[in-house]
Computed example of a mutant assay.
Amino acid sequence: MNLQEVAVWVDGLFPGEVTIDLVGDFHVANFHDDGQFIASTLDFQHVETGLEAEDHDIRVELFAVASSEKGLKELVSATAAMLRDTDIIPQPGEVVPGAGALVPGLSVAHSLLVVPFPWGGDVPHFKDAGIMTLMLQILPLTDAELEYLQTYGLAELQRALVEQQIDVFNLQR
């Protein structure tokens, strides 16, 4: 898919009017709707993941949701750049350590990649010329949350975040 095709696809996934910025090495679509901000890569799908399914190469676009736009698109772009430049496979459960630390003003220093939750379990995808592009959500983590994840695992982290009513959309928590 070219940039325009991805932009149209991503625009149909999220509410609000879209704006597109070049942030670092990646184009990022930005949405604002009812106090919620969303940023999504538009050209990360050109980065090979090494994953395959249903005779398709699997690629991803990354997105994050926040209660403020401050640092959001930069976090998404930094996470994409670190994934491109490391051997971390962009798939649910992987951590991109230090991605948030590259963005001034954020207290969430890390990016945890998770199955997207805005669509209730259905993961939007697009198939084109032997490539399946999926959406993958970034859940920003603080140092303490990353330590908890590494100690107790993902299921326990998710339980603790809910139990302690942690606002995972607050990038300055």
Score class of each variant (00 low, 15 high):
4 Q>W: 10
5 E>Q: 14
5 E>R: 08
5 E>D: 15
8 V>F: 12
8 V>S: 13
12 G>E: 09
14 F>Q: 00
15 P>A: 09
17 E>H: 11
19 T>M: 14
21 D>G: 03
23 V>P: 01
23 V>H: 04
28 V>Q: 04
29 A>N: 06
29 A>C: 12
31 F>R: 00
32 H>W: 08
32 H>S: 12
35 G>A: 09
41 T>V: 08
43 D>F: 07
46 H>Y: 12
48 E>K: 11
52 E>S: 15
53 A>M: 13
56 H>A: 12
59 R>L: 10
59 R>T: 09
59 R>W: 08
61 E>C: 13
65 V>A: 08
65 V>W: 01
66 A>E: 00
68 S>I: 12
68 S>F: 11
69 E>A: 15
69 E>K: 06
71 G>Y: 02
74 E>D: 15
75 L>K: 02
78 A>G: 13
83 L>N: 01
84 R>T: 13
86 T>G: 04
88 I>V: 15
89 I>Y: 05
91 Q>C: 13
92 P>H: 05
93 G>E: 08
94 E>C: 09
95 V>N: 05
97 P>A: 14
99 A>S: 13
99 A>E: 00
99 A>C: 07
102 L>T: 01
103 V>K: 00
104 P>D: 12
104 P>F: 11
104 P>T: 10
108 V>F: 04
115 V>A: 12
120 G>A: 08
121 G>W: 06
123 V>G: 02
123 V>E: 01
127 K>D: 14
128 D>M: 12
129 A>K: 09
130 G>L: 03
132 M>Q: 11
132 M>A: 15
132 M>I: 14
134 L>T: 03
135 M>D: 03
141 L>C: 03
142 T>E: 02
142 T>I: 02
142 T>D: 02
149 L>F: 09
150 Q>S: 13
154 L>K: 04
156 E>W: 06
157 L>R: 01
158 Q>R: 07
158 Q>I: 10
160 A>H: 08
161 L>S: 04
164 Q>A: 15
165 Q>C: 11
167 D>E: 14
167 D>L: 07
167 D>Q: 09
167 D>N: 14
168 V>H: 06
173 R>T: 00
173 R>L: 03
173 R>K: 06
